[in-house]
Simulated assay, not measured.
Amino acid sequence: MSRTIAVVFALAQRACALPALSLLAESEAPNMVTHSIDNLPVAEIMARWPGTIRVFIALDMHCVGCPISIFHTLAEAAAEHQLDAKLLFAAILEATGRL
């Protein structure tokens, strides 16, 4: 059962690719990606890109499983944990493979 869930989840992640990125010039693409991630709740970021979970854990953020993570954006989570938002964004983008 868990293998089936993992396969379905992996296929769903591939479907979440941003097709608009292929239409943008290289210099514009990072801004588009940052913009799409900075408005997402932390819980959705972790659901779409499970590799980001390790970033939250490494930074000693307790976002994994937190009921507030469905509301907080990255900027709000960084402020709540007294972290530099730019560093958090960079780490998340790297973990998503979109940096």
Rank of each mutant, 00 (worst) to 15 (best):
M1Q: 14
M1H: 15
M1A: 14
M1W: 14
S2F: 13
R3L: 08
T4I: 13
T4D: 14
A6D: 15
A6T: 12
A6L: 15
V7P: 09
F9K: 15
F9P: 13
A10V: 14
Q13E: 07
Q13P: 07
Q13F: 05
R14S: 14
A15T: 09
A17T: 02
P19S: 13
A20D: 15
A20S: 15
L21V: 13
S22V: 15
S22P: 13
S22T: 15
L23M: 14
L23Y: 13
L24K: 03
L24P: 03
A25R: 11
E26S: 12
E28K: 02
E28P: 06
E28V: 05
A29E: 08
P30C: 06
N31V: 08
M32C: 13
M32G: 08
V33P: 05
T34A: 15
T34H: 12
T34P: 09
H35D: 06
H35C: 04
H35E: 05
D38F: 11
D38T: 15
D38Y: 10
N39M: 10
L40W: 01
L40K: 09
P41E: 10
V42P: 06
V42T: 07
E44S: 05
E44W: 07
M46Q: 02
A47D: 07
W49V: 08
W49S: 10
W49L: 10
W49Q: 05
T52N: 06
R54T: 00
V55R: 01
V55L: 04
V55W: 03
V55Y: 04
F56E: 09
A58F: 00
A58T: 00
A58K: 00
L59A: 07
D60N: 14
D60I: 08
H62K: 02
C63K: 01
V64W: 07
G65I: 00
C66V: 09
P67D: 14
I68N: 01
S69K: 05
I70P: 03
I70S: 12
F71M: 09
F71Q: 10
F71H: 10
T73V: 01
L74G: 02
L74R: 01
A75L: 08
A75S: 12
E76L: 00
E76Q: 10
A77C: 11
A77G: 04
A77E: 04
A78T: 01
A79V: 07
E80A: 08
H81P: 01
H81A: 04
Q82A: 09
Q82P: 03
Q82C: 07
Q82L: 04
L83Q: 09
D84F: 04
A85Q: 12
K86G: 05
K86C: 02
K86T: 01
F89L: 06
F89K: 04
A90E: 00
A90R: 04
A90V: 00
A91M: 10
A91E: 10
A91I: 04
E94S: 12
T96S: 08
T96A: 05
T96H: 01
G97F: 08
R98P: 04
